[in-house]
């Protein structure tokens, strides 16, 4: 189901399914609460959070940011290809997005392994408790996003999507952009903001 509205003579269209947009709003609200909880805890324990943040590698955070955003670009370009009825090209771009997402997963797992090896697990202190909850929750969303990207790529190869029918693909791609949207606020809060 697509929605559209005529506003001041200009055709305005909401991409994807309306249900996906309500889902995205719900997800954004949950992440906003988690990010705010992290920030309030930081205000209560500024020294602990500053010391905890020193143990995180910002360049790793930047690499993860670029992986996610570039995967988002590939997914958006794939959507454009489907609209032009080029599902095979779209499938290639979606596979590229999936590879970039794998890069994010590899970097994140390396970071997790490094922290665990240094005894910085969930019980270490409040900073790391919230770090693990927040980043692991986002990580799970990335994994689900990867399943969706793979499903969309398969759908493109089977010509399930095309110039006339692409609402489902738009909804899947929107989910990935939501994951990116959350990360661009989560990244500075967790890695940068002292």
């Amino acid at each position: 189901m697509s929605t559209s509205a005529e506003t001041a003579g200009v055709s305005r269209r909401l991409p994807g399914d309306l249900a996906m947009w309500f889902f995205i709003l719900a997800e954004l609200s949950v992440f906003a609460l988690l990010i705010l909880a992290f920030t309030v805890a930081q205000a209560l324990h500024p020294q602990m959070f500053s010391e905890g943040r020193q143990l995180l590698d910002r360049s790793t955070g930047l690499a993860m940011t670029l992986s996610l955003l570039t995967a988002g670009l590939f997914a958006a370009l794939a959507q454009e290809q489907v609209r032009q009825d080029r599902p095979r090209r779209a499938a290639l771009l979606l596979c590229g997005a999936l590879l970039l997402a794998c890069g994010y997963v590899a970097i994140k797992l390396t970071e997790y392994a490094h922290l665990l090896a240094n005894g910085l697990g969930m019980e270490h202190d409040t900073f790391f408790t919230l770090y693990w909850i927040l980043t692991a929750f986002h990580f799970l969303h990335v994994l689900l996003g990867m399943v969706i990207l793979a499903w969309l790529a398969e759908g493109c190869l089977r010509r399930r999507y095309g110039a006339q029918e692409h609402s489902g693909l738009e909804s899947g791609v929107l989910y990935w952009h939501m994951v990116d949207l959350v990360w661009v606020l989560l990244f500075p809060v967790v890695y940068i903001l002292d």
Binding site: T3, T7, L14, P15, G72, A76, D180, V184
Partner: peptide, 21 residues
């Protein structure tokens, strides 16, 4: 900067610049 990035994703990637206000 974070808000600007969020807006770029919303308006650019999610195409909300063409969506109902």
């Amino acid at each position: 900067v974070a808000v600007t990035k969020a807006w770029l994703i919303a308006d650019g990637f999610m195409e909300l610049r063409h969506a109902p206000r």
